[in-house]
């Protein structure tokens, strides 16, 4: 890796960023053009004729493609932020328990049937779950928590929420409810509406901004907590800013999409060498990388000629897990 860095011409991170941005836009358009119906996308987008084509694009495909970008970006940037914060390339939103607790919140609304009665119950459950997990982390790990106690708190929350999810499945009043929960847990972006986008997007964007604002801190943290503090950062403020940012955007993302794993883990891992391992620069890059990966995955599940559409979370895990195993295998000497 050291040698290849020397031989390759210097690529600026702004160039990488803009090429990923272009790729995201192209994939977004491709996603809008993807689906069972054969639609003239140009006409449907630009002419206001209230045709069926236009309805399909606006009501079905647009929210789906938008959510792929929003959720993908959230998972990518959160993974990068947590890896920087914990200085551990294996961290991701799952680690601090935000994903699982958010899932628990959503499962509770499904279990009690609230999700069917009010449209915003499911997203709200996910967000409350995520915030709950942050509060529990706060209580367990304290204000001046060490990284270790933070990870342990995350593990505890993960264990608790997954056991409660299993309990809910166990006691599920009818097979349909259990089915609904299992399907939702698998992760998908199909059949979402613009309302789902509207309720989740602000929280995700708020989370991104909170994370991006810790750009400098994450760079400084490369040299350890004491050095970061001596460079003028209030460690506790910065740490909680990142955690709240992650909780907010992951909570919102999980509630609209279910559990979509591995993006937060794999995307920063792939992109890190491109920014010469700078944790701050990795944030925006991972957001775009996450959006691209999720768009590709979501387009793929629609293209695959399966009888029933594959769940997005299943596909990302199927591709992500072996890929990640391979990465660990290659870099096993460099990992702690």
């Amino acid at each position: 890796m050291v040698h290849s860095l020397k031989i390759r011409p210097q690529i600026k991170s702004s160039q990488i960023l803009s090429s990923l941005l272009v790729l995201t836009v192209l994939l977004f358009l491709l996603a809008l053009n993807t689906g069972d119906a054969d639609i003239d996308l140009y006409k449907a987008l630009l002419q206001n004729d209230a045709s069926i084509d236009q309805m399909i694009v606006r009501e079905i495909r647009l929210p789906r493609a938008m959510l792929a970008i929003l959720v993908g970006a959230t998972l990518g940037i959160s993974g990068a932020a947590l890896q920087g914060l914990l200085r551990n390339p294996l961290a991701d939103p799952g680690l601090v328990g935000v994903s699982s607790c958010s899932a628990l919140g959503a499962v509770i609304t499904l279990y009690f049937g609230w999700a069917g009665s009010v449209w915003f119950a499911l997203p709200l459950g996910g967000i409350i779950g995520a915030l709950g997990s942050v509060m529990i982390v706060f209580l367990l790990a304290g204000r001046s928590s060490s990284i270790l106690s933070l990870i342990l708190a995350g593990m505890a929350i993960n264990a608790l929420s997954s056991s409660l999810i299993s309990l809910a499945l166990n006691f599920s009043p009818n097979p349909y409810a259990a089915n609904e929960i299992i399907y939702w847990l698998l992760g998908s972006l199909s059949n979402r509406s613009l309302d789902d986008v509207a309720i989740s997007a602000p929280l995700m964007i708020f989370g991104w901004l909170a994370i991006i604002s810790s750009y400098r801190f994450l760079n400084a943290l490369s040299l350890g907590e004491d050095t970061a503090r001596s460079l003028g950062f209030n460690i506790n403020h910065q740490r909680w800013l990142i955690i709240l940012g992650v909780a907010s955007c992951v909570g919102a993302a999980v509630s609209v999409s279910g559990n979509i794993g591995f993006i937060g883990l794999v995307v920063p891992h792939i992109l890190r060498p491109l920014v010469k391992h700078e944790p701050g620069k990795l944030l925006a890059l991972s957001a775009l990388g996450g959006a691209i990966l999720l768009l590709v995955a979501d387009i793929t599940v629609q293209w695959l000629p399966t009888e029933k559409e594959l769940k997005l979370g299943v596909v990302t895990a199927l591709i992500g897990a072996p890929f990640f195993l391979n990465l660990i295998y290659k870099q096993r000497n460099q990992l702690l």
Partner: peptide, 28 residues
Amino acid sequence: AQQIGYLAQGAPAHWPLLAEKVVELGRL
């Protein structure tokens, strides 16, 4: 931070940042 410079024990570096980038952190 502008007046006191602190060099931590054990010289930790958690990512393989380029030496130049490490020096740039001093301007934070």
